[in-house]
Write a protein that binds this DNA or RNA. Structure first.
Length: 387
RNA sequence: GGGCGUGUGGCUGAGCAGCAAAGGCAACAGACUGUAAAUCUGUCGGGGUAACCCUUCGUAGGUGCAAGUCCUACCGCGCCCA
């Protein structure tokens, strides 16, 4: 992999670049749609390409469980397996340390709120913080890695940095990630310190383990603590990674989020690409790109689509609302995607209310196209010197 | 014609003397950021911010302090016997 920076903004940390891989070039900044199980849910690879998606991210943990990396390897690795010719990433499974652990215990996301704090008291965590010595109920984290129970058959399985890298080598994505511990947002300072030691130790093991030509990104953690973020960025940034992921918690609002990203970005080697893990509401994009992020993945366009939420130039629409049954008009007049050119709101509303898979599929297509177009426009604005 | 059974809020379905009435579905509103499709939360007879008030359990009477709940008649539906 080779990363070329074409232009650096004079107004912000934003930059335009080319991420060159064996499977083609990614124009950055770029959204990376999520294909956890080697598929963007509801779409086939050809359709994903038609949404202007340039690169996807699959998941090591999920593919290890099902169908198993050996199957994927025999099929000619991920690209052939899923018939996707363009670049691919795989996430290391580090996030599942969180999502199947404390995240599940407390019903939390890795980002506590980012300003969208829930008003529903029942959804607020029923505890104050995670402290040193606490273990999630379903998994056990030790110094070498994480013991999971397979959600499929209950088998005990172990994934640590070595295991993750070996799996990712078999999966064969262009860009792979180091195995980290994504700390829960409410972990206290001591917990995050200890966790960071592990993540850093694991980072070195990942580098040592990797034998393939795949690009390997290290992951910066440190939660909401500035000194830990800086420490982590310096440490991870000082290692011989091809790029860097930034993960974990980013504070209570969008401004804090971009500040935290900037702390980290300023410590990372300038010439290498930076990937922000799991962030990407529309309103986040300009902020994180201005903070110096080159790529970022987010489940929102695809996940929300399956819940009936459409992102359009008139805002976020809940297409399951009965009122849309009376709207014989395109989802978004200003959108030129296949869905907006060929289907109307009434029909899509009907499909979604009837729980038809095609409803989810049409919305997934539109949302991805819309998000990708949104980022494309941001790239244009950087080119013009507006951002 | 005779016997037994049944009738509950938009639907379904509990309740068998102290109820505005369980549960489910539907509806309505909200949430979701390194994926969770079919999830989570709230509302869901009417009125008021609220303590509270009003109207409901086929219809009409009756017995009780109190009736969706017991009794009588009628109406509708179901099964069985003639």
């Amino acid at each position: 992999m080779n990363f070329k920076i074409l232009k650096k903004s004079k107004l912000s940390r934003a930059r335009l670049g080319f991420l060159e891989t064996e499977h083609g070039v990614v124009e950055t900044p770029c959204l990376v749609p999520v294909a956890t199980q080697a598929v963007v849910k509801t779409l086939e690879s050809k359709e994903v390409q038609e949404t202007k998606s340039q690169i996807l991210i699959s998941n090591t943990f999920h593919l290890h469980l099902k169908p198993g990396e050996k199957i994927v390897e025999k099929a000619g690795k991920l690209h052939n397996f899923m018939n996707w010719k363009k670049p691919l990433m795989t996430d290391s499974g580090g996030y599942q340390v969180f999502s199947l652990g404390f995240g599940r215990d407390f019903g939390l996301g890795s980002k506590l709120s980012l300003g969208n704090q829930t008003k529903d008291k029942n959804l607020l965590p029923r505890f104050s913080e995670v402290v040193v010595g606490m273990q999630p109920q379903k998994i056990k984290i030790n110094n070498d890695g994480v013991i999971f129970r397979s959600p499929i058959n209950g088998d005990e399985l172990f994934i640590g940095p070595k295991e993750s890298i070996k799996i990712q080598e078999k999966l064969g994505a262009d860009i792979i990630f180091a195995f980290d511990e994504c700390t829960p947002p409410l972990a206290d300072l001591d917990y995050v310190k200890k966790s960071l030691e592990k993540t850093h130790k694991w980072a070195k093991i990942c580098l040592k383990t990797k034998k393939s030509k795949q690009a390997l990104y290290g992951i910066v953690q440190g939660s909401r603590f500035k000194d830990l973020r800086l420490e982590s960025a310096k440490f991870i940034g000082g290692l011989d990674f091809d790029g860097f992921g930034i993960g974990g918690e980013f504070g209570n609002d969008k401004i804090t989020m971009s500040q935290m990203v900037e702390w980290v970005v300023d410590e990372l080697p300038e010439k290498k690409p930076r990937h922000l893990l799991g962030v990407g509401y529309l309103e986040d994009m300009e902020l994180i790109i201005k903070s110096g992020v080159d790529t970022f993945d987010c489940t929102v366009p695809t996940h929300y689509a399956r819940r009936g939420i459409a992102f359009t130039s008139e805002g976020k629409l809940n297409l399951k609302q009965t009122k849309f049954l009376k709207k014989r008009e395109p989802l978004d007049k200003n959108c030129v995607c296949n869905v907006c050119l060929n289907y109307k709101k009434d029909y899509m509303c009907h499909l979604l209310k009837a729980n038809e898979i095609t409803g989810m599929k049409l919305l997934t297509f539109h949302n991805l196209f819309y998000f990708n177009t949104f980022v494309e426009e941001i790239r244009q604005r950087i080119k013009k010197g507006e951002i």
